[in-house]
Nucleic acid binder design. Structure first.
Length: 792
RNA sequence: GCCCAGGUGGCGGAAUGGUAUACGCGAAGGACUUAAAAUCCUUUGUUCGCAAGGACUUGUGGGUUCGAGUCCCACCCUGGGCACCA
């Protein structure tokens, strides 16, 4: 038995496919478009991670399956090369990210070529390419003009190690998503995208999406809808009352004090009345300096200070109640103020215990009445925050806005109404002095800056490049000052799937005709870790672009499936554990086909798998057997498909649709085992059917043996084998005979036999008689084509 | 604490309420070989038995059912997500 010559074969077909553009659909003429998307990688200089290959292979198999089912499959790939990840790596090795990007790009595309995916190479894109980020910036200006991008000073997440602010979604359990450092709160003025505007839609649409359930649930929790009411508590001597948000207006009789978040503006307005102001101020300052982790690490031991000298009135019973400040109340949620009901809320109870406050178990009153009585307003609150989009870093698309003092003044003189009439955009009016760069002047090119490292000063390295920031105002032409922050990498990846079909379009971000034809994405496969990052941002951006009239759909991904985590010997794969797998080594040693198939055989794609080197020989054995069987194959007279194969086709087809590739591979092994047992009974059609079903898993080998069998390439554009239900039925089956639910005997019988006949056969069997011991059956259950159960 | 997913041989894992342990790895024995590798054949859940055959077995304990890995209840464990969001 020979080993199949994978090196030769893989080289040969890579060149052939490229030359013939087998996997490059005609995007304009395609009749049956199917957009098969996988999450594009962040290219690190270490090269393609085995986890990437696991995900890409899983996605590619599906794409190949759909292609054989008659779809024009579009399977693009690109590089998400802008951002902190690439930049931090460049810093580490002392290279410049701009130069480093070119190197990693070459290496990545080399590797992506090797793994045997059917990529549409003509449509690849890189987020750091000015031809790409030109349109990322255009999206920014469009959102800005529509009032969906705005500047705001607020306490934001700051990563001291990455020296930049981060979005809420990028803080994982109080730590930076990229470097794992503890994130602190800083009061800074930053750019945001108004994701909260779409909170309701982002949540409601989830029910309509065909997505992995766990991802939908993660998004649901992250958006976090709460139905409740705003209740006003008046404060003596204060004009405006304190408004609190509660989901439990029915508990209001038990509200014995109010609590304000330390950042609450209400505290400042009460300043003159507060007798212990110094103490209060000290507390506010102390909690401002705390990191998220610190607040949590104190084991939720409650802290706080009473605002002495001020009292609020509970509108339900007109009782005077004290007001406290405590950091257990979150500033950015609701109104940043709560009514504390220690009798019905654990957290309030803990606070009361600590400070000796009364716990009044007052009766509950019906919600509606409570709302009426207190003249409260029903509202819905979301946990979701606006997307903090600016970054004080170098390696990203410059935010395409210019600050102009003259325009700020002009706007002030005009007033908002006249400004609007004169054609000032919503964004310009709401963010005085900020003017978007005109479309024709995009991209704002990221200049080459020698010292690109983050400064830590709260501004990006671009802030020290005069030739960059000094620029004429796009509106009035006077000297303006460019925004020197760049945008979040996640903005690049929030729209890349829109760009793929239109990569060659120099005039628009995306061609309307191509977009209509190919989008939304038909099948998206990627990691569940992006549930509230990339997947949420993409949905937001699609909704925003739809409202701006650029798209006619509001959900970007019709179907999304999350693949599981690839482990190694039961442990997570990480550099620190030293168990990193380099796909290059395995491809060199076993071939891309064997490596692909091995990865897919480890377990169900959506559940992940445990990579063990030992197991790969099982796959190479199979492929060697297939190879030798084909090269020695001499078809006998028999031409038709063997009847037993119908059931196999059915199983494999179903398993591919369900992404249960491991089971499909097992079935392919069973077919090969049967071929080996009775080689003389294998018809040419049998073998070809097998090769067709093998093709999505082992594209190179399959193409070669397809040719050896006398067919023209490419096997990958041939129709998927069909089966007939009638072909699955055979003349007989094995009847299982149970006595009291336990299997006692089995016997081959004619298919289609009926209950009475089966009973007669069963009762005639000596084994069954032995178990019956002469007693008569009280009940007989017959399952057609399967079993008979005799109950005594 | 809350919300998901899961717990099946030595290991990865199969199983529309109907033959549990498919397929693969590993292991043991044999064939070929001077020998080894490769390959091929046989065996391989536990246990009692010389055997025929029996008993037990899908995290634990209950339940529904003629029949439960699968459905229901309670609990234990593992992995993931959220975490003072009122």
């Amino acid at each position: 038995m020979k080993n199949y010559p994978f090196r030769k074969i893989e080289k040969k077909w890579t060149a052939f496919w490229l030359k013939k553009k087998v996997f490059q659909p005609d995007l304009k003429k395609a009749k049956n478009p199917f957009y098969n998307l996988m999450m594009f990688p962040y290219p690190s200089a270490e090269g393609l991670h085995v986890g990437n290959m696991y995900a890409f292979t899983g996605s590619d198999i599906y794409g190949r399956f759909k292609r054989m089912q008659g779809c024009d499959v579009f399977e693009p790939i690109g590089l998400d090369g802008f951002g902190i990840h690439s930049e931090n790596y460049a810093i580490k090795i002392g290279a410049h990210p701009m130069k480093q990007a070119k190197k990693t790009e070459k290496n990545f595309y080399r590797q992506l070529q090797m793994i045997g995916n059917g990529f549409a190479w003509d449509n690849r894109l890189q987020t750091y390419d000015p031809e790409y980020y030109r349109w990322t910036q255009w999206i920014f200006t469009e959102l800005f003009k529509a009032g969906l991008a705005f500047r705001k000073k607020s306490p934001v997440n700051w990563c001291p190690s990455c020296k930049t602010v981060l979005a809420d979604e990028q803080v994982i359990s109080g730590k930076c998503e990229r470097c794992d450092s503890e994130v602190v709160k800083k009061d800074l003025e930053q750019w945001f995208f108004k994701t909260t505007k779409y909170a309701g839609k982002l949540l409601d649409n989830l029910d309509k999406l065909d997505w992995s359930e766990k991802v939908k649930i993660a998004q649901k929790n992250w958006i976090g809808r709460s139905e409740g009411a705003l209740i006003k508590f008046s404060v003596s001597g204060l004009k405006s009352p304190i408004s609190v948000f509660t989901t439990r207006p029915d508990t209001i009789l038990g509200a014995t004090y109010l609590v304000l978040a330390p950042e609450s503006a209400v505290i400042q307005s009460l300043r003159k009345k507060i007798k212990n102001w110094e103490e209060v101020e000290k507390y506010i300052a102390k909690s401002a300096g705390k990191s998220e982790a610190e607040r949590i690490s104190e084991e939720r031991e409650k802290t706080g200070v009473e605002l002495k000298g001020v009292k609020a009135i509970n509108p339900s019973n007109n009782m005077e109640i004290p007001i406290w400040v405590s950091d257990y109340v979150v500033a950015g949620y609701g109104t940043g103020a709560i009514m504390a009901v220690p009798a019905y809320d654990e957290r309030d109870f803990a606070f009361s215990e600590k400070f000796g406050l009364p716990v009044v178990k007052a009766p509950l009153i019906p919600k509606d009445q409570a709302i009426k009585q207190t003249k409260a307003k029903r509202t819905t609150e979301y946990r979701l925050r606006d997307w903090l989009i600016s970054r004080q870093r170098y390696w990203g698309p410059p935010i395409p806005l210019v600050y102009c003092g003259h325009c700020a003044e002009a706007l002030n003189n005009l007033g908002p109404k006249r400004a609007k009439a004169k054609g000032w955009s919503k964004g310009e009016i709401e963010n005085p002095g900020w003017i978007p760069v005109k479309e024709k002047n995009l991209p704002v090119v990221l200049p080459f800056v020698k010292d690109f490292r983050p400064t830590g000063s709260g501004s990006s390295p671009l802030a020290s490049v005069k030739s960059f920031y000094e620029t004429p105002c796009p509106r009035c032409g006077e000297t303006g000052h460019r925004e020197t922050d760049v945008s979040d990498t996640f903005l690049d990846s929030a729209w890349y799937f829109l760009r793929y079909p239109s990569v060659t379009d120099k005039k628009r971000a995306f061609d309307p005709k191509l977009t209509k034809k190919w989008l939304p994405v038909d099948m998206y496969l990627g990691g569940a870790e992006h549930a509230v990052l990339h997947l949420l941002y993409s949905r937001f951006l699609t909704m925003a672009l739809k409202d701006l009239g650029y798209l006619d759909f509001e959900e970007p991904f019709a179907t999304f499936h999350a693949h599981g985590l690839l482990l190694r010997n039961g442990a997570k794969i990480s550099k620190s554990k030293g168990n990193v797998i380099n796909p290059d080594d395995y491809i060199k040693k076993f071939g891309a086909d064997a490596f692909r198939m091995h990865l897919m055989f480890l377990g169900p794609l959506e559940e992940g798998g445990d990579f063990r080197d030992a197991g790969i020989v099982g796959i190479t054995r199979l492929l060697d057997r297939v190879w030798n069987f084909v090269i020695h194959f001499k078809p006998r007279k028999k031409k038709n498909l063997s009847p037993w194969l119908h059931a196999s086709i059915k199983k494999i087809t179903k398993n591919l649709s369900d992404l249960r590739y491991n089971v499909a591979i097992a079935e392919l092994m069973i077919i090969m085992n049967k071929f080996s047992e009775h080689p003389d009974e294998v018809s040419k059609q049998d073998l070809e059917t097998f090769v067709l079903m093998l093709a999505p898993f082992t594209p190179f080998l399959s193409e070669e043996i397809w040719l050896i069998l006398g067919n023209k390439p490419s096997v990958h554009s041939k129709p998927w084998p069909s089966y007939e239900e009638s072909g699955i039925e055979s003349g007989s089956f094995e009847l299982v005979i149970q006595v009291n639910g336990r299997v006692r005997d089995r016997v081959e019988v004619e298919s289609g036999i009926e209950a009475k006949e089966a009973e007669k056969i069963a009762l005639g069997r000596p084994k069954v008689r032995a178990f019956l011991k002469g007693s008569k059956p009280i009940r007989v259950i017959f399952v057609e084509g399967r079993l008979i159960n005799i109950v005594v």
